[in-house]
Design a binder for these strands. Sequence first.
DNA 1: ATACATGCAAAGTATTTGCAATAAA
DNA 2: TTTATTGCAAATACTTTGCATGTAT
Lengths: 152, 152
Amino acid sequence: MHRSSFAKSLADLKSRGVRLTPQRQMILRYLKETHEHPTAEQIYHQVSQEFASISMATVYNTLHRLTELGVIRELSYGDMSSRYDGNDSEHAHLVCEVCGKVADVPCPPIERFTSPELFAHGYAVGSYRLEFYGHCPDCQQSGAGQRDSELN
Amino acid sequence: MHRSSFAKSLADLKSRGVRLTPQRQMILRYLKETHEHPTAEQIYHQVSQEFASISMATVYNTLHRLTELGVIRELSYGDMSSRYDGNDSEHAHLVCEVCGKVADVPCPPIERFTSPELFAHGYAVGSYRLEFYGHCPDCQQSGAGQRDSELN
DNA sequence: ATACATGCAAAGTATTTGCAATAAA
DNA sequence: TTTATTGCAAATACTTTGCATGTAT
């Protein structure tokens, strides 16, 4: 038996002296338990059900703080709101350009696609992002495809 | 001698029946000639010098159209405005998280990092994006680092 | 000639901020 | 008790839209 990813992150944050308000715990738990890559809006909606008075400002505050602390990831896109990912292990994403759904895919270790030219620029690289864009199975069959709003 | 990337794209668009207004040509030329990955604002500013009456709406319209046509790429980020890339060949980016500067890096062919799991999801993948985040040489030495606004 | 692009100003959306009230440590 | 976080409302930043005018083909 191993502790949930949520419990692990929580302990980690506590040991780092991060203040753990109920709001933060709920947001973190939700992100660690879902695989949905929700938007701030969806997180707000979800967490509101248990904690009615929470505000969007707190949701955004918390998401930034957790991202900065490295326990979640922010995925930003040009034409839709950012999505948040509780899976902090190394992986890539499959993004549906029609409905916005995001799926996780395993990803080769970073060394696989780093080149000497990369280092030649002298950047101190801390992280990377690999994403594939396309149409998900649902949106391929339903000719027109559902909008970003409907499912995902 | 080979035709400039701009001339090539222009001919390509013409043959595809795309209406080539002076505004569009200027924006496209600028993007094909710079390696700066400018924002919409920067493009507007630059093109305004030759074509004073151009509007932001036209800049955005054009950027979307050109992206859709596949001759440029849009790079969106969470905390700053999108940047546009006239280099339509396969490559990755090095992004400075301090000043926002974006550099091109060669990138292995897509097959190098696709896995069976990727296909198992059934997505029809059309494109991908690979980005490395870190601190550029300039921002590493200048301890505090310049802000997104200053240089890049 | 005509469909499509432009430019303006107004609207929209996502996200951020200031600040007084509140609660975690 | 102290200092960071919350929640509200107002503000900002970026991007999009409606519509009358203009223009590339």
